[in-house]
């Protein structure tokens, strides 16, 4: 992360406050990233699991959504690993 204090003469307490602020913003950024990922998963898994929206989310759909998230992450990990191996071997 860029050091936004450089070039300013800050007192020790101001520096501590800035560092604290940076930490808190990083936490919020992580939460926002989590939410962005949830939007993507919901988008994909809605198409896979929801046929016709009923008066309640039935348990079959709920199970499907959970499996969808798990398998999507598994797929991401599998592809990332395999791709890494391919790159390391220099194969195409």
């Amino acid at each position: 992360m860029a050091d936004f204090n450089s070039g300013f003469d800050l007192s020790a307490s101001e520096k501590a406050e800035a560092a604290e602020l940076q930490k808190m913003i990083a936490v919020e950024q992580q939460k926002a990233q989590f939410q962005a990922q949830v939007h993507n998963f919901t988008d994909v898994c809605w198409d896979k699991c929801v046929e016709k929206p009923g008066s309640k989310l039935d348990s079959r759909t709920e199970t499907c959504l959970i499996s969808c998230v798990e398998r999507f992450i598994d797929t991401t990990l599998t592809i990332t690993n395999r791709f890494t191996q391919m790159v390391q071997k220099g194969a195409h």
Partner: peptide, 25 residues
């Protein structure tokens, strides 16, 4: 009616996905 129902279910789905992702993490 369909839109109203769909909205409610989409938000349910969002929450389910959020919980599933969180527990996986």
């Amino acid at each position: 009616k369909c839109i109203a129902m769909c909205m409610d279910r989409y938000m349910d789905a969002w929450n389910t996905v959020s919980r599933a992702y969180n527990s996986r993490l």
